[in-house]
Nucleic acid binder design. Structure first.
Length: 422
RNA sequence: GGUGAGGUGGCUGAGUGGUUGAAGGCGCACGCCUGGAAAGUGUGUAUACGUUAAUAGCGUAUCGAGGGUUCGAAUCCCUCUCUCACCGCCA
């Protein structure tokens, strides 16, 4: 949620910034709502005050044995007006909430203006794609023979957009997530978490997945949601809480499966395991002091990069333009890994600073000794990394002429010392 | 799934219809006391929203959540939810 003050004191500039994000705000309607809200809220509270005051004096009069009938008559008149006023206010607040809950975060000044992914800006390129002296295979081709990547069986079990891994490929998939977790906990200072894979609606709303993106998530019969990312449970751990300033930053990591409907992406990435209904991801989340969030974003991005570097995978870092950023983000870096089989870079991580947007929805605050009032924290999240896509990248980048795959040295300890799978 | 007992402020713990946002205690903050500390003692100590230049006042809301009864609800009624205990089932 945006700071409601912005929509009052700086409506036009805010609307313009929202327009950059592809979100049209109906200024006139909003102003109308705001004007009536103010009038009706003041009226309602005044009436309520009057009623409370009279009710209290009824109590006192009764205690003294006085006649309370005149007071009862007086308060009876308030009743109806108050009911009316209350329901009007409720209605207006509901309408305003519908607007605020659906309004995205504002982009940071440093974010390039743009409409869609074509306007994203490359920040740096790291590593050089290997030159192969044979015809490179993509991961589907690599996996379908002796290596264990079985789309057909998965389709028989579950339908499209699922993958079945077997043997050494399955082992490598497991090894990757272990490796990533160890890196983040041992070298980058994150605490490891094991979290629920199903959460309630309130939790989904806290981090911004609901109400706007309800169609993207799987919902269970008892109204729980399968997490689309560990960001959801991790970030919401600080919901409705007041943290001591000295306890910031809080750095958390978790390895979980992620579940996404992928509604609206029919026909996109249907081959292979790029876009799946279920995929594993190691997620990083930071809860930080507002002054430090942009620095934390740089650090978190470098933590994700460290994994790619350790696995000897070429990648580039791009900053998403205003039109391509996610709902809750104020600035996002995407990491794109080199995928030789497609002769292109593909997204493998997304690191975002959400500033106080999620914190306001969740009421996640901290208390500083110098400031009396609790202040909103800033939240960040980043993939470190998407495990399935990392597996693809390792397979394709470290493939050999004979179709075998070299295990990157950093990963070998996690695979019983194996240097190659075939 | 069944039965029972419960959810009150940072914590603990009173409170079954009337100045109760909420006693007492602990903790915390500031002061007094002290050579210094402890003990003792005094004062203060929730959050959100609105109004406002204001983190000053003032107002509204909040005792798990949502409804209801009432002039008035932490207190009465209904629904949901979570916790605990026992039974059943189960990795």
């Amino acid at each position: 949620m945006l700071n409601p003050q912005l929509l009052r004191s700086d409506l036009e500039a805010t609307a313009e910034k929202l327009a950059h994000r592809g979100y049209p705000l109906d200024i006139e309607k909003w102003q109308q709502l705001e004007t009536s809200r103010k009038a009706i809220q003041i009226e309602t509270e005044a009436l309520q005050n009057k009623r409370t005051t009279i009710s209290k004096s009824i109590g006192q009069a009764k205690a003294k044995g006085e006649d309370i009938q005149p007071l009862l008559d007086e308060v009876a008149q308030i009743g109806e007006t108050l009911e009316h006023s209350k329901s009007q206010l409720k209605d207006i607040l509901l309408q305003m909430e519908q607007v605020t809950l659906y309004t995205p975060n504002l982009a940071d000044e440093s974010v390039p203006l743009g409409k869609d992914e074509a306007d994203n800006v490359e920040v740096r390129v790291c590593g050089i794609p290997k030159v192969f002296d044979f015809e490179v295979k993509n991961h589907v081709q690599l996996g379908e023979k002796q290596l264990g990547l079985d789309a057909e069986s998965a389709a028989n079990l579950s339908g499209s957009r699922f993958t079945l891994l077997t043997g050494e490929v399955a082992q490598m998939h497991r090894a990757l997530s272990q490796f990533m977790l160890d890196m983040h906990t041992q070298k980058h200072g994150y605490k490891e978490f094991y979290v629920p894979y199903m959460v309630n609606a309130q939790t989904m709303q806290g981090s911004g997945q609901l109400p706007k993106f309800a169609d993207d998530a799987f919902i269970t019969e008892d109204d729980r949601y399968l997490i689309p990312t560990a960001e959801v449970p991790l970030t919401n751990l600080v919901a409705d809480s007041i943290i001591e300033e000295q306890d910031l930053p809080i750095k958390m990591t978790a390895h979980t499966p992620c579940f996404r409907r992928e509604a609206g992406s029919y026909g996109k990435d249907t081959k292979g395991m790029i876009r799946q209904h279920q995929f594993d991801k190691v997620e990083m989340v930071q809860i930080v002091h507002p002054e430090n969030s942009f620095q934390a974003l740089e650090e978190m991005t470098s933590h994700a990069e460290a994994i790619l570097q350790a696995l000897d995978l070429p990648y580039k870092v791009i900053v998403l333009c205003t039109g391509d950023m996610g709902f809750s983000a104020t600035k996002t870096y995407d990491l794109e890994v080199w995928v030789p089989g497609e002769n292109t870079y593909r997204e493998i991580s997304s690191c975002s600073n959400c500033t106080d947007f999620q914190a306001r929805r969740m009421q996640a605050r901290f208390r500083s000794p110098d400031v009396k009032k609790p202040q909103l924290v800033h939240t960040l999240n980043g993939s470190g990394l998407a495990v399935g896509r990392t597996l693809i990248a390792v397979m394709e980048n470290h493939q050999n002429t004979d179709g075998s795959i070299s295990v990157p040295p950093a990963l070998q300890p996690y695979m019983g010392g194996k240097t190659q799978i075939n």
